[in-house]
Amino acid sequence: MSEKKKYFWAGARSEIPLLIGVFPFGLIYGALAMDAGLSTAAAQAMSSMVFAGSAQFVTTQLVRDSAPGFVIVLTIAVVNLRHVLYSASLAPALASVSTRWKALLSYLLTDEAYAPTILHYEKEGVKPFSHWFLFGAGAALWVTWQISTALGIFLGAAIPDSWSLDFALPLTFIAMVVPVLKNRPSIVAALSAGCVALAAYSLPYKLGLILAALVGIVLGVLVEGKANVKPEKELSLHANVRDSLDESQ
């Protein structure tokens, strides 16, 4: 087997434990997107155009609330800001590949592709074809995300409204936010943002959401500065992804 293939399949295999978690997420996303009133085509297209789980859930929620487009785009940008860090973190390892490869690998650079790839680079170092590892991991994830979205859309159409499936959305966000509340600044950031969101709920264009997020972020930084708390190194909505990887290896 060539080096390229070897790295590609090693990357794809590294995704297996993560895919077990990703698949039901795609199902839930697809079902909720239908429930929020997105068309079948739009719900499916979002999984390849945006290709970012948490941003897609947030978009679904905001579409349901009939938020204006610019607020949704702004929120997607804020929710996905962490990808700048992944980009920074993988940049040295990808410095020597062509721009075309950089673009393709960037498109595939999700939380779940980043986690095993950075572990791979830390363990094995950078080799001539090791970017195929990220390609394999990203491709496995992409295919799984598309298929699970499609199945979710199919199932979502069959679930009656009386099941209140939409409640799975706030539950998803709760499941994502609680594990990152590891120290006082992050708890302050979460609680203050939540309270401002309540107080500013009646602002037009869902601007209360943006305002609340900004207040939470600023207060988190201020409290950290005051307490001089060392933040966790891992800045990820999916810190549990890394945990589950560690367990599986």
């Binding site: 929620q61 962490r82 709760i174 936010v177 950031a189 997020a213 972020i217």
Partner: peptide
């Protein structure tokens, strides 16, 4: 880098609170 650390808790709570309390 420090600032980015607080994006997830702030944004997600800002979405969840109104869903639960209102």
């Amino acid at each position: 880098r420090k600032t980015l650390h607080y994006v997830p808790p702030a944004v997600l709570s800002a979405i969840v609170f109104p869903d639960l309390f209102l």
